[in-house]
Simulated assay, not measured.
Amino acid sequence: MSSELPKALREYFEQSRVALALASAEGDNHLVLVSPAFSRLTGYEPEDVVGRNCRLLQRDAANVEPRARLREFLTRPSQPNVRTPIVNFRKDGTPFVNLLYMSRLRSIDGKASYIFASQFDVSRSQPEMLAEYDEQLTATLGRLVPIASDAGIVVEGTLLTIANSAAIVAQAKMMLAGLESPPDA
């Protein structure tokens, strides 16, 4: 399916320093394209994940609140985007807390064609690294909008600035600590 994507969009993903994924807005939201930065972050190569739902990164993590936020986004077409920390696992089984951002890409006629996603490991990051990621993601979205527009695709919603990066990092560390602690006997 990635061959059906506009060439400029495919090239954009190839060059992005930010971990990006593009999923179908239909059915089970299977992945159609991932960036090399996604592969570096997760350890999964495109052939491992294209055609599969990104939930494979969650394995058996509970992720109750993040999953509820993601379900709400996916079932509410009027919601332009979502941003939430979620426990994911690299291909080698190493857990990390992913600060996931998702937005819809719509065709000119308003039909949601794709779901755009960005991933960032906040498990062990510092607030200044998160601020740098926010800057990179904002720049990424700024460059993506005209590329998508030229291909007749509208990027829905805008990135909202994180009010308190330190709080997100602290939440991520608590999520990871909960994963690494043995369950109560």
Rank of each mutant, 00 (worst) to 15 (best):
Q119L: 07
V82Q: 08
D121G: 10
I115G: 05
G93T: 05
A151R: 13
F120K: 10
E135V: 05
D150R: 15
V50M: 00
N98E: 09
G178Y: 02
L144I: 00
G110A: 05
E47D: 14
L144V: 05
S2V: 13
G152C: 01
C54S: 07
E47L: 01
L179K: 12
V34W: 02
S149T: 07
S125D: 00
S39E: 14
V18W: 08
V97G: 06
P46T: 04
S3D: 15
V34G: 07
P66E: 02
S123H: 03
L22F: 01
P36A: 01
N63W: 07
M129K: 10
L137Y: 10
D28Y: 04
A148E: 04
K111E: 11
T75V: 05
R106H: 10
S118P: 13
L160F: 09
Y133R: 06
L22P: 01
A21Y: 03
A117G: 08
G178D: 09
L31R: 06
R10E: 14
F96E: 03
Q58R: 02
S35C: 02
E72W: 08
P127F: 03
I108T: 15
T94Q: 14
L41T: 03
S16Q: 12
R67T: 14
L137H: 07
S103W: 04
M102A: 15
L57H: 09
L31C: 06
N164Q: 11
Q119F: 13
Y114F: 06
S39N: 05
Y12F: 14
V122Y: 04
I147C: 00
P80G: 00
R52D: 05
F116P: 01
V49I: 09
E11D: 15
S39I: 01
V154I: 10
L159D: 08
I115A: 04
P6M: 03
S103V: 00
F120S: 10
I108A: 13
F73K: 10
A167L: 05
Q15A: 10
F38A: 04
S39C: 05
T42A: 01
I108P: 14
E26Q: 13
E156R: 11
L41W: 02
T161S: 14
L130M: 06
A112Q: 08
V18P: 09
R106P: 00
N98A: 02
C54G: 07
E65W: 11
G43H: 06
K173A: 14
D150N: 11
A139E: 12
A163S: 13
F89N: 01
V155T: 11
E4K: 15
R124S: 12
V64S: 03
E47P: 04
L20D: 00
D134A: 13
A8W: 02
L137F: 05
D92M: 02
R67F: 13
A139S: 06
E14N: 14
T84F: 07
D28H: 04
Q171D: 06
L159P: 08
N81G: 12
A68P: 11
Q58F: 01
T84A: 11
I153H: 14
M174D: 14
K91H: 11
K7Y: 12
E14Q: 15
A112H: 08
